[in-house]
Nucleic acid binder design. Structure first.
Lengths: 257, 257
DNA sequence: CGTCGCTTTGATCATGATCAAGGGATGTGG
DNA sequence: CCACATCCCTTGATCATGATCAAAGCGACG
């Protein structure tokens, strides 16, 4: 569902991945065709199933076409850390699948549509499409920036700031793939999972959300989050969205000459 | 100092970077020559100077040849999060420099020797040396794994586990570039910086180190750390070193056929 | 010899965890 | 259609991990 709704459109960025990469640097029709080809023959994965299993070996990555999935690690005593939330357009398996044995588990939070891209196909882009390859590999490297930002949050932000930051990140990322409104979106995680992502207990996440609501910064109706005072929330969270996007991928400038 | 000590050696992995990449997959003499060339004309940077300034624009990355540097972010109110410790052989500027404006600051902890590698030169490797380019870009992507591991630590490990994990990571990484003994190394950070890396206060880091010493797991003499009971420390920290290395870079297998 | 940077110590405090339990929803099988 | 189960949110009480504040010791270095 939702896969290429406007099949007839002349040069629309059709898949979420194309859409995302387009935000980094303009793509040629040729490159878009290559990307589309990479995402052909998608596979359906049901809720709660594992997309990537820790310890297994993989020969490629997955592109998430629709749905939401979670990268996580469970420690021996059951404590869990959610490393990242993958939204449509995200690539699953970086960096976990770059190792002999996958480092993390990725589970489908909702039913997902994914397309497998073997490493061979990625590396074969080097020669005919160096610019596209560079764009893709830079976006892989940027993965690290999202983790770094989470690290800053978990390491040095208070619970309130963390939750606020998380909400802003979700809003921004969902907007980037057209899944959120101006100031509202549907929260894809339970409060327990938010806790596991933010290094907090369920109860404290709940408490914190109530605090944000009491302060009039946001409101919650079921899973529907509405940000009431965007500026105040941004100030509270010290949110700097540049790490999520940025118009022209800096390093790619050198292809323009 | 320490740069290419054995100039005459026939096929020694001479620079720390070559050494590191060699651990991922065997390099041809040709590829080693290219790497050496990338690292020619190093620049000296004094202690405390910034190698990368947050907000500035960069057109390449730096390879750290010798010395230690810190990637960090300072929040508006002065709280600091140390994101990573860069050791010889590490590439500085991923992912921070992949943005229009650098996301993080990198400061030299000791005097450093670095070599600048413009993005153009990296991308020019695609065509003549696809295998090498793949190795380099995969190692960039793996950067994310180190952050993810830190995230797990800061999010879900106790202070004791965190400090233990940090010590083990330093030991392993320093060994990889020949800067540590079997079970001892020189700690390149002050306790305050360790705190900023681990999301702890200075005093508590101190307290925790004393606890580890009292339990006979390690001993400390000035900056010299000695691990007394490696197995116990590994068990305590739930340390899984595969994220730091791993013999054959999984995705590169496809070049072998 | 004084100062600066770092470690150490101790006392007090607060953020956020844990434990325990109740309360809707939604779903499911009898 | 109802009993029951499950999943998730919510509330309150208590507890502990680790922060903060304050200050002293201790080299090294100019």
């Amino acid at each position: 569902m939702g896969l290429r709704p406007e099949q007839g459109a002349a040069f629309a960025a059709e898949t979420p991945l194309t859409r995302k990469l387009e935000r980094l640097s303009a793509l040629s029709l040729d490159e878009i065709a290559v990307l589309d080809d990479l995402q052909s023959s998608p596979r359906r994965v049901a809720r709660r199933r594992e997309l990537v299993a820790e310890g297994r070996r993989y020969d490629g990555v997955l592109v998430l076409l629709s749905g939401v999935s979670l990268r996580q690690r469970v420690l021996h005593d059951g404590r869990r850390q959610v490393l990242n939330v993958a939204l449509p357009g995200d690539v699953i398996g970086v960096p976990g699948c770059l190792y002999e044995n996958a480092l993390y588990t990725v589970v489908a939070l909702t039913d997902c549509l994914v397309s497998a891209v073997p490493f061979v196909r990625l590396f074969r882009l080097f020669e005919p499409h160096p610019r596209l390859a560079a764009t893709i590999f830079c976006s892989f490297s940027r993965e690290a920036a999202i983790y770094a930002e989470h690290l800053i949050g978990v390491g040095r932000r208070s619970a309130l700031e963390r939750v606020a930051h998380f909400l802003l990140e979700m809003l921004t990322r969902l907007q980037a793939v057209g899944l959120a409104g101006e100031r509202s979106f549907e929260l894809p995680l339970t409060q327990e999972l938010m806790g596991d992502a933010l290094g907090l207990s369920v109860q404290y996440v709940n408490h914190t959300l109530q605090q944000l609501r009491a302060d009039g910064l946001m409101s919650l109706d079921g899973q529907q989050v509405t940000i009431n005072d965007l500026d105040a929330l941004i100030a509270l969270a010290d949110f700097e969205k540049s790490y999520l996007g940025g118009r022209d991928l800096g390093p790619l400038r050198c292809f323009n000459r």
